[in-house]
Design a binder for these strands. Sequence first.
RNA 1: GCCCCCUUAGCUCAGUAGGAUAGAGCACAGGUUUCCUAAACCUGGUGCCGCAGGUUCGAUCCCUGCAGGGGGCACCA
Length: 553
Amino acid sequence: MEKELNKILENTLHIFNLTHIPIEIEIPRDESYGDLSTPIAMRLAKTLKKPPKIIAEEIKKNIYENYPHIFEKIEVAGQGFVNFKFKEEFLLEELIKIIANHRDYLNFDIGKGKKVLLEFVSANPTGPLHLGHGRGAAVGMALCNIMEAGGYKVFKEYYINDAGVQIKKLGHSVYARYRQKLCDERDYPFPEDGYRGDYIEEIVLNNELSSLLKEYNLCKDTFEEISSLVNNLSCQLMLKDIKKDLADMNVHFDTWKSEKELYDKGMVQEAIEHLRDKGLIYEKDSALWFKSTVYGDDKDRVVLKSNGEYTYFASDIAYHKYKLDRGFEEIIDIWGADHHGYIPRISSALQALGLHSENFNVLLIQMVTLLRDGKPVQMSKRAGEFITLREIIDEIGPDTTKFLFLFRRHDTPLEIDIEKAKEQSADNPVYYVQYAHARISSIIEKAENLGVKLDIQKIKPSNFRLNEDELRIVKKILSYPMLFKSTVKTREPHRIAFYLYELAGLFHPYYHKYRVITEDRDITLSRLALCICAKIIFKEGLTLLGVSAPDKM
RNA sequence: GCCCCCUUAGCUCAGUAGGAUAGAGCACAGGUUUCCUAAACCUGGUGCCGCAGGUUCGAUCCCUGCAGGGGGCACCA
């Protein structure tokens, strides 16, 4: 609907010898202002040196004359808005088009095949995923689906931080627990900064670890002797759990990139050399520094410490270089909001490597707090007391978990009330939306059983009989493209979730007020068409969010 | 001290890349089931959009300052 208006406005402005004018179209707040509206006359007032109302009148007159079959009413209002009300017939034609070819309606070519690397979750494999990771996973997966529907080519990658001291701590913790549990050495010292969570014990008691270490005598060999083996195995087992959590959330990655591999293949050194060749690396206090200030960072950053070790930032540079080397044109990283301070330095590195800053985007994911009985559940990672993503998925199910993660802008803190999430009531938006889909499915099924079937080839707008409530739903459905485009542009998946919630909020009352299957054949077919369309949208939206769209509940 | 984010109805939050008279849900009160799924629906009313300036035809939205809340500052990861 907005696409047609856009074209019409473009043609109209062309008549006035105006080309390449950005056309804004919006849905007016108040229904009485029409279906769509444009403030274009106010925009043009300056260039044309005419009052906006005069311009608006000219636009109105012109469109009225040339497109009498599309508009019911065109009005000039306010300071110069042009408000459009479509003819019912036009709206219904649009509806039929959706049913006839919904892929065409739901997919867009905003990205024009642009290759995007989307990196998300990337949690250190030193413990189970927590809620924040889950939120990042949900947002990442949804964003990927959305951008692909928007014509981008998106690759999803998980970066495994398996090279640093954290992995050593993990291995050391596992080793110490092993001595304590399986070697009868209850007093074996546990590393002070080790990981104390129960999951360490689970790794130790896991038969897989024991069997993999059969050839070694862990009770005799010192940690130093077998550390690399234990570190590695612990990391592998941890990753296995992480992969399972993500798989159960239906989150999948195209590639899992290991940090350790970057070192083993000399890519870290290579990346630093590359920057050195560009004159962006210098030595100070026997350390190597990257001139990130050249690209707007507050201060230069160390890449090679004076003790000869690379910083975490060094491997990050190498990793992001690797992203570019594979030909990706846009880099999107999804991070916890506590990492926001890293944006300038990574952005600097990418710019130094030749990427324009607008092609690097970071989505920051804010904290998730869990409420039980209305009170926040205290979490402390050091003491090993925290609620894992796994526990929440098991308790409230993956669909609810994902939807709740996506029912808020990603950069604002989120509270999840676990009692409410389990309630499966109106407090729980995911059920509200899914239920609308299930209800529609049930209606369509019933109609089929009664032998009522919509023949899309034969149906014409003149067959339709839709009332005011129904037209409101039709318009909401027809506004999907606008919503979708804004979601792609802003990279804010929550907009889809809110849209679906609003659509469900129109459908449920409608369902309650009217019956779809009636004695009147035309009315039945009309309403059925509306239902089929709504179902297409619910299904699409939920799928984009990674949430299931059940036919029965 | 410096940087980032947040501040909208009693509560939780939207607000369509600057538009018209700022919206939902919850909570609270009352009601609805012979009917395609009651996990639903209907009827009730609320706002110094944190404060103060600025930009302009127009600001909840952009800029500056201030206040309150959260997060971050490293040759940690």
